[in-house]
Amino acid sequence: MNQTYTISIFTEDIIGLLNRVTIIFTRRHINIESITASESEVKGIYRYTIVVTVSEEQVQKLVKQIDKQIEVLKAFYHLNSEIISKELALYKISAEALNENELFTRIVNQNHAKILSISPDYIVVEKTGDEREILHLFYDLEKFGMLEFVRSGRVAITKPMKTLTSYLKELENKNKTTVKHFNN
């Protein structure tokens, strides 16, 4: 059964590594629904958040392949129920919406959205929420004339998980065991 999984990947800060990771998806013909990358709470360690809809078996295999990349510290996967996640969306709509000011304001308020800026030609609305909420607002605002719409990828925090720093300590110990070289 296909489900939505959020894959969190902790990596070293290396040029091209994101490419190495995305190739793993492309090669298996799996569509990345959203992707974000930023520095984590530990300096120099990056966190990629990738959302895919696949089977559990597929996500397990994907995560193993990701983990196998030399500069990936660790990859995890989670179901929606195991994370707290948000996306951010910006909507640029025609200033004509102000002609129906009451309706417009009601929609913005009901959706817990925010007006970011108003200019003579357009209005920019901001909303954080899950994908469904963001699309809901999109359809509500569409009638005013949607000039531009952009959605960030998902950012997610997992509910139960070791802290990154304790995990890094573990890695250090793991590497203290001696490594056998192929040629000796």
Binding site: I70, E71, E172, K180
Partner: peptide, 12 residues
């Protein structure tokens, strides 16, 4: 090079 912190070549 004797270790890389993100690379575990040989699981114990």
């Amino acid at each position: 090079c004797e270790s890389i912190r993100s690379y575990f070549p040989c699981p114990k």
